[in-house]
C-alpha cells in the first residue's frame, strides 16, 4: 500500500488547519449581514469554499491524487452524473 507515499503527517496537519480555517470563514460569511443579504455574492462564495474543502479531502485524505486513475474516474463519473441528473430535476421541479 504505497499509494500515499507522497503524503506526510505534516501535510495532513497543514490540510487540517486549512480545512478548519475555511470552515471558520464560512461561519464568518454566514454571520455577516452584507453577505447574508446578497445571495448573488453568498451562494458562489460558500459553494466555492465547500468545493475547495471537498477537493482537499477527496484528493489528499482519500488519496485520489496518488491512487490509480481508475478510482478517480469512477468517483468523478458518479459524482458528475448525479450532479447532472439532480440539477436537471431541480430545474424541472
Amino acid at each position: 500500500m504505497g499509494e500515499n507515499q507522497h503524503a506526510t503527517v505534516g501535510l495532513y496537519w497543514k490540510f487540517a488547519a486549512v480545512l478548519c480555517f475555511i470552515t471558520f470563514i464560512e461561519w464568518g460569511v454566514f454571520k455577516n449581514d452584507t453577505f447574508r443579504s446578497n445571495a448573488k455574492l453568498m451562494i458562489p462564495l460558500l459553494l466555492g469554499l465547500s468545493v475547495v474543502k471537498f477537493t482537499m479531502v477527496c484528493g489528499w485524505y482519500m488519496h485520489l491524487r496518488y491512487d490509480s486513475n481508475i478510482l478517480a474516474k469512477i468517483f468523478g463519473f458518479s459524482l458528475g452524473l448525479a450532479l447532472l441528473v439532480y440539477t436537471i430535476m431541480h430545474l424541472a421541479l
Binding site: 470552515t23 464560512e26 460569511v29 454566514f30 451562494i43 460558500l46 459553494l47 469554499l49 465547500s50 474543502k53 471537498f54 479531502v57 477527496c58 485524505y61 482519500m62
Partner: peptide, 18 residues
Amino acid sequence: WHFVDVVWILIFTVVYLF
C-alpha cells in the same frame, strides 16, 4: 469515513449556511 465527511461538507453548506 472520509466520504461521510465530504457529504457533511455539502450538507453544512447547502442545508445550514443557505
